[in-house]
Amino acid sequence: MERYDAIKEIAKNLTDELVIANIGFPSRELYEIKDRAENFYMLGSMGLASSIGLGLGLSQDKKVIVLDGDGSILMNLGSLVTIFNQNPSNFILIALDNSAYGSTGNQETYCKNTDLLKIAKSIGFKKAFNFKDIDFKEILSEDIEEPIFIHFKINPGNADVGIIDLTPDKIKNRFKEIVNK
């Protein structure tokens, strides 16, 4: 499975959850699959999707899902430590791990040999799962209580999708409106 189908699999279960989508193709693919005001497309600042999600999770009650990439997680690895210690009770981080910098041409990342799930577990995450071992729909319907780390192993590959034709202001304003409704 490539990223596009993985995001499709995730998106079909979404109701009112807030989604932070990683820079590049992950955002573009989500935009094509299921654009909604609850999606924040992070168009720059590689590495910070999980941090934006954490700040959002700590500041309101709706569930927050971060669609991150393995390369981006490696760039801001400290974020996992902060997330675990802050212990948000409405936060799900999904690591779409293609072991590559997909958006820049699939150059290999160190996740080829280094297991992000093991890292999450050793940081302290008690709810750290492989996507294939869980019922994602059920997780979304339950009270979360502590942050969840989901490792979604996929193959490299970008779908043939266009760019996001929303301005950053538009993305921000409609997202802010729905968050604070």
Partner: peptide, 24 residues
């Protein structure tokens, strides 16, 4: 005040941005 000690300033700015989107 919600105070979040962070591991790196850049990370902190990401966290702040998320909090701002929720009205902080």
């Amino acid at each position: 005040i919600t105070h979040v000690p962070v591991t790196r300033e850049e990370e902190g700015l990401g966290i702040c941005a998320g909090a701002y989107l929720a009205g902080k």
